[in-house]
Each structure stands twice: as structure tokens, then as C-alpha cells.
Write a protein that binds this DNA or RNA. Sequence first.
DNA 1: CGATACATTGATAAACCTCAAGCTTCGTGG
DNA 2: CCACGAAGCTTGAGGTTTATCAATGTATCG
Lengths: 246, 246
Amino acid sequence: MNYHPVQIHSNATSDRCCTQPSERCANCKVRLHSICAALEPEELRELDALAHPASFKSKQTLFLEGDDAANTYNITEGAVRLYKMLSDGRRQIVGFALPGDFLGLTLGEKHRYSADTIGEVRLCRFPRTGFLKMVGEKPHLLRRLHDFAGNELNMAQDQMALLGRLTAEEKIATFIVGMRARWTRLEGPSVTVPLPMTRQDIADYLGLTIETVSRGFARLTREKRIINVPDGVRLIDAKSLESLAA
Amino acid sequence: MNYHPVQIHSNATSDRCCTQPSERCANCKVRLHSICAALEPEELRELDALAHPASFKSKQTLFLEGDDAANTYNITEGAVRLYKMLSDGRRQIVGFALPGDFLGLTLGEKHRYSADTIGEVRLCRFPRTGFLKMVGEKPHLLRRLHDFAGNELNMAQDQMALLGRLTAEEKIATFIVGMRARWTRLEGPSVTVPLPMTRQDIADYLGLTIETVSRGFARLTREKRIINVPDGVRLIDAKSLESLAA
DNA sequence: CGATACATTGATAAACCTCAAGCTTCGTGG
DNA sequence: CCACGAAGCTTGAGGTTTATCAATGTATCG
């Protein structure tokens, strides 16, 4: 249960290969799922000039809680876990960022949580100063950031209700249903729900131990609601899962 | 554990008694603790024109989750509990709003949680349309709203760590220490921490039962860290309480 | 003064955690 | 290609924390 993340930026590789610089944002696969959907074509070019695309290997730390927020990030591929550590090594994962999700939405000077990659990740990095300047000049961009932040806040409060008031089995069912909804938004509906994170990550997200999570999946499998598949689950009885989650 | 809040707006009484309308905001006791601290004198007059001061009796519902967000509110006196209900009556309190706190920060069309008063409450109500218009014209006000929202989000994530990873006693100690910090900001330091909410409210905030909360306070009393006083606690050994909370 | 809401305390039960062992999967190098 | 090791996952047994059920105590308000 003790974690000692090491911050390694040298493993980020530049990723400006295939398209014209001025069109990278325009061609971005996750644009319509992200902040960037608020921008006009010209503004998109402006953002493009700020963007530093990069790839990260698995288990790299993007930043730690308390670090100066020198950059904001837009995930384009892969998944990132966001977490807070307690002084004695206990960990609470506060969210999983998927493609289209934005880290550093709140524009604060310090990161308020740590972030590291789960599997390979591609993202766009935006230096804070340039991004702040752009936000300052474009109230509608700020407004969209604010709307996204409002949504984040609501999701955090829903997660508070999950952590405080649901049983282990309800937590796990809710987690699966929620992940399905998120992947559906990105890639369309599917009965297979990708779960790139480890059982330990899920446990630290749901306020459980790894054993309880494992037993929860086992029980849902025994009850013929899901089947375990590599890096995810297949839903056999989505209805009954949803009723457990509700 | 089942709650059936009834929405009663008729108990709100107008509260425009003592000062000139154009100076109410300028004289507002909580102005410097709230969003309003961002405003110029002239903007303050503009906000003043939008403000509807009101008083509420104890246990009145200001709004329910899902209601159209017709108004935003700035608390000037008293305390409000913000909560989400599950379909079967379980409740999670997502926050307590104290003087200076703003409800409806996120500018969404629907309220994402319910709110009702704890004891008598005074507040300023701002009709959504007028407030939105003002925000649209004043990017620095939006920016301040956004900063407040970022802070809310961070506090929600800290609360996630509390709910998911702390023991009952740690939760209670953290709660007391946190409430003391908030009252200190409003009224200066004191060893007496007001706790206007019921034990059930505290339980629903910390993800515990009322009995466990009661036993927690009893234990902290037995350990000579606190003394129970009417509507609050007195800190005997703040240091040891903080070490429990850390 | 009685009624009601709120709080405390005790006994018991259930959920979840801890500790321990064994199992799968997957990547690496012989 | 297979053997091996590491990391991640599962399962079992037993213990602890917290919930539940029940009774009693205390404060508040008409």
C-alpha cells in the first residue's frame, strides 16, 4: 500500500509526426469531446501553436500534487490516474482521465493532485503562461472551462455519495456502469467495457481493498452479470448491473 | 434514515430593513469572504440592484437537486447543508455552506444537489438571468467564480480521500479541525468550534452512522482532546486532534 | 409538563479488512 | 520455443471496525 512515484519526464517523446502543425488540433480525434470544441477555426490555430503533443510510456508520472502547474494537459489517447496520497501511504484515486479529458482545468498555480499514466498515453501539453493568456482573452473559453469544472465538481460529489453510502458490490457495479457510459461517449456503445487500470487502482478509487474488489468482480461473474475479459469486462446483464448501481 | 424534504419558499421573509439599497452590498459583512470581493465599487452597486436579501427559518429547503437553478445564493449568516439523496433514502451531505459561501457557483441550468437551512439563515438571492448577464459582461468575475469552483473541486476531492481512506475517528477529527479552520477565517481564532448541524448531518457528511459519530465524540472527550458544548465543541488538545486528522 | 427531536450507550451482527497462500498472465532470455 | 520470474489477481480463514437494533437519557418547545 506504499507508493513512491518517480517523476520521469525524459520518457516523453515528441509526437509531431503526421500532420501539418497548423492542422493538428483541427484533426484531433478528441476535439469534440474536449474544451477545444468551444473554439472557432482561427482560435483553434492559435491553440495549435501552444500545443506540445507527446507520448508517455506506462506508469510515468505527469506531475505530483503540490508541483507548480507549469502545464495543462489534454489527453488524446490512453488513461491517466489522478490521486492524492495521505502522509502514511494510503492513496485515494480521485478520478481517471480518458481521451478528451483535461488536467488543470482549474487554472490554479499548483497541482492539487498527482497524475500518472496507465498504459501508453498520448496527450497535448499546453504551457501554463500561454494558455492563461489565451483564456484571459477569450471569455467564452473561460466559460467553457468553467462549465467543465462544474461538471467535474458534480461528478466528485456523486463519487462522495458512492464512497460514503454504497456497499462494496454497489460501488463496483456503479464503477462499471460509469466507465461504460464514458467509453460509450467516446467510441459508441459496446457490451465490452475496457478497464485499463489495475484492481488496486479500482480499489483506491472506490475506497476498498484489492481483495474486496476482486471478490466483487468474482461475485458479479458468479451472478452472471459480467464476464471478466483481459483489461476489461463484458456485460452479460447490463440491466441488473444498472439496478445495482442505482 | 428516510428524508422527505418539503420545499417551502413562503417562509422566506424580505430583509431590506436597515441600509440604503445601494449600500447593502458595500456594507455586507461577508463580502470580503465571498465572490463579491472581486468587484469594483460600481460593480458592487450593479450587483446590489440584483440582490434580494432574505431570511429563512430553520430546516427550510432552498432548492432540491434537479430543480431549475432560478437563483444563486450567497449566505450571509447561518449554515446550509448541501446533499444528494439516493433513491432508497440514503443521504450524502456533500458540504456545509457557511457565511460567504456561494450556492450555484457553477452556473448550470439545474441544481446538482439539494440545499436546506440549519438554524436561521440570512442570504442574498440573485436571479439567474440577471446574474448570468453580469457574469457575461465581467470576465474577471467569471474568473473569480472559476477560482472558487476550483477550490470547491479540490475540497470535494479531499473529502473523497476522507470518505474512502480514513477511519471513523480520523474522519471526525478531520471534520472538527476543518470546521475550526473555516470559522477561524470568518470570525478569528477560537478554541470553541460551532457545530450547528446535527449528529445525523455529521454522519451523512462523513459516511458514518449517527451512533458511530456519537461514539467518536465520546471517545475524543474521554481522551481529553475535546469537550462537548451546546452546538459545538471546545478544543482541549488541538495539537493531538490535528495529528489524528493529518 | 408532556411531547418530540436529538443524543448517548450497550449488545450483537455483518461487512469489510488483514494476512497468507496459490494462481494467471506476460514479458524476457536462455 | 519454453522456462522462469515478476506483477497482478484470486481465494480462503480469521479478525476488526463499523453498522444495526434496542433502550435510555437529555434538551427544547409549545
